[in-house]
């Protein structure tokens, strides 16, 4: 189990972890969805959140993004409390979100979908008119479909577009919600490779919710959830088959 010490009101953004969550409780109406969740995402590391369907993983990510607001608890991003910030402000602080179901804007072209990803830059960077070459190096398939409507792409292509769109905003933390769900195996490997490459070249933190074991093992650290609470955590190297059996297998 994790324990967190009461943290000072202000932390040095240089030394503070990327994300620090303490005592988070979330309710849908009267049902208690997240119970006292605490977790830490260190800088430059990949953290994976595992658990069966319906344990609250996606709800957790939505709380980090600001789509949902917790009833109690604290979410810090680089030491700053972000509980009261709306999603767009959090995005501009540097949280890139790739939601479940991808949520590509359907009637915008692929190019427009990518350009709109730069909205998250805010005052942190300068938006450009053309999509930089790095994006095509990560996802070559996008280059050939720039003028297609986002909604006309296949599931795998949409997933790649959604990740590329998040990268366009040069996030400090990339939040991925089941990026391999419902996608054919060859593309899963592409996506996995791309995410690894992104971490290697940019040094950003990643929070991943994933069921695909091979991908899970790429993470540095894991948290396992059950019934809305964190029940185990540790380095991924210690993620034994027993633990997987207990928290992931159906």
């Amino acid at each position: 189990m994790t324990t967190t010490l009461p943290s000072p009101a202000l932390q040095d953004p240089m030394t503070a972890p990327m994300v620090e969550i303490s005592g988070l409780n979330f309710y849908y109406g009267e049902s208690h969805i997240l119970r006292d969740v605490s977790m830490t995402i260190p800088k430059g590391q990949m953290v994976c959140l595992i658990g069966r369907n319906g344990v609250g993983k996606t709800t957790m990510l939505k709380n980090i993004m600001g789509v949902l607001r917790p009833r109690t608890g604290e979410i810090r991003f680089e030491g700053q409390v972000v509980n009261n910030l709306p999603p767009d402000r959090r995005a501009r602080l540097g949280i890139g979100y790739v939601p479940q179901g991808r949520e590509v804007i359907p009637r915008l072209t692929v190019r427009e979908n990518l350009i709109i990803g730069q909205e998250a830059l805010g005052s942190r960077g300068k938006a450009v008119k053309e999509v930089p070459e790095e994006i095509y190096e990560l996802f070559p398939v996008l280059k050939t479909m720039l003028d297609r409507m986002g909604g006309d792409l296949s599931g795998g292509q949409q997933q790649q577009l959604a990740i590329a769109r998040a990268i366009m905003g040069q996030p400090k933390l990339l939040v991925l919600d089941e990026p391999t769900e419902g996608i054919q195996p060859s593309i899963i490997l592409d996506i996995e490779a791309a995410v690894k490459k992104i971490i290697k070249t940019t040094g950003i933190s990643v929070l991943l919710v994933e069921q695909h074991l091979h991908f899970v093992r790429q993470a540095d650290y894991y948290y396992a959830m059950q019934r809305g609470g964190i029940v185990a955590n540790g380095p991924t190297s210690e993620l034994t088959n027993d633990i997987i059996q207990e928290f992931l297998a159906v």
């Binding site: 309710y27 849908y28 109406g29 009267e30 939505k62 789509v67 949902l68 607001r69 999603p87 939601p99 949520e103």
Partner: peptide
């Protein structure tokens, strides 16, 4: 109030 919190962003909720 609870319902309001959820319906804020219906697409996700």
């Amino acid at each position: 109030p609870e319902a309001e919190a959820i319906t804020e962003t219906p697409e996700f909720a």
